[in-house]
Design a protein around this nucleic acid. Structure first.
Lengths: 217, 217
DNA sequence: ATCAGCGCCGGGAAAATTTCACGACGTTGC
DNA sequence: GCAACGTCGTGAAATTTTCCCGGCGCTGAT
């Protein structure tokens, strides 16, 4: 019995790479490919693959959201995240969303194959570098944003990173600009950063702010 | 006569993809692979390939710097940049550094092959999406940082994004904190942004600030 | 040679923002 | 009931940002 696989990555040349690696492995068969989250969801429903290999950064709905939706449709779906982000924050997000594995693209092909086998066998597969990252972040506990912030604070943080001025946020939140400024200050305090610049970079590292570069002008 | 190629990308599975695509093309032969800029430079010198296919985001010295060094070593080197960044800023940097082509990873395999052929034939190859980006950025001219800023301003900008406080920058630059604050304000003015957060995001888009996520904690 | 223009450096003062201390209200949990 | 906490807001002090200014040195044009 060969296991069927759905490949999800927005770079076709990269999918070619996955396929090439997986083909060499007996017992695996790639039956479909998707280039974004929405297509992945659609194909999962129609093809019902045994395993999904999913990239994180994709146009439209991102990988994490795609994982969430697929798991919502099939609570037993086996999804292995395969991404460039060597970052504990992303891994935590992905696992929380329902991924059964997280492997970085810097890993050698064997690691990917091994992870595929593990996930198919029902195990959880995390690549060693991320394991290490995770351990580190536990030790030298960088405040990890999403935990130490209250829901309201977190929302203000997201808006600060996306929207612009304090006043705009105050309006969309129906509170006084003063409150937003207070929260802004409190957030920086809780996160242990001194400037907005550090704040953005922290958010970047932790995957709160996702966009790498889309939307130039 | 078959053309020899050096592949540079820090993700081995991705290199697998390139190879797979290029192998199908008669007249092309991949003779070496590198996982970072330094290795690429070393291999270029020892293997003297006809063409280099280079990723941009890599550990250690990045792709742009690698392009620069290789071109310094061999002014006639043919380098094709193949990256995920669908961003005019990166393309401009790469071309200025000496790349002869710029293709995004979202492009279909044919586009890559076509670009490889064009560059080998001595032409400049830019993928259509970037051409479009370039045109757009010319029209709705986003201030493009590096141009409108004087050298000194640009340096302060870099330090703001990397270093932290105004005072630290003042010291490393041997000027008064006041001057740094003034420059900081002037930079935001010239770039047309209202807050530091926008400033960081602009820098991100334009590739002034490169690190995507390395160095979590 | 003179002068205008510009990059660079910083002072001063007004304006805006950040920060801190504090109070109020509702919820939750012991 | 009450302590603990999240949320919202005020006010006033502290700090930063911003704007306007003058001075210096260089370059290029007249």
């Amino acid at each position: 019995m060969t296991a069927t696989i759905l490949l999800v990555d927005d770079h076709s040349v990269v999918r070619e790479g996955y396929r090439s690696v997986l083909q060499k492995q007996p017992g695996l068969r790639v039956i479909a490919e998707a280039g974004d989250g929405a297509e992945a969801y659609r194909l999962f429903k129609s093809e019902a693959p045994d395993l999904v290999i999913m990239d994180l950064s994709m146009p439209g709905i991102g990988g994490v959201e795609a994982v969430r939706r697929i798991r919502q449709w099939d609570k037993a779906a086996k999804i292995l995240v395969f991404t460039m982000h060597e970052n504990a924050g992303f891994a935590v997000q992905a696992i929380r969303a329902g991924a059964r594995g997280y492997v970085t693209k810097t890993s050698p092909p064997e690691t990917l194959v091994r992870a595929v086998m593990d996930v198919l066998a029902g195990k959880i597969a995390i690549s060693p570098d991320i394991d290490h990252e995770l351990a580190l972040s536990r030790i030298s506990g960088e405040s990890s944003a999403a935990d130490v912030l209250t829901p309201r604070e977190f929302e203000v943080l997201r808006l600060l990173l996306a929207e612009n001025t304090t006043d705009e946020i105050a309006e969309t939140l129906h509170v006084s600009p003063k409150t937003v400024a207070n929260l802004h200050s409190l957030i920086k305090d809780k996160l242990g950063v001194g400037s907005d610049i550090e704040l953005v970079r922290l958010a970047l590292r932790q995957g709160i702010l996702t966009q790498p570069d889309l939307g130039d002008a």
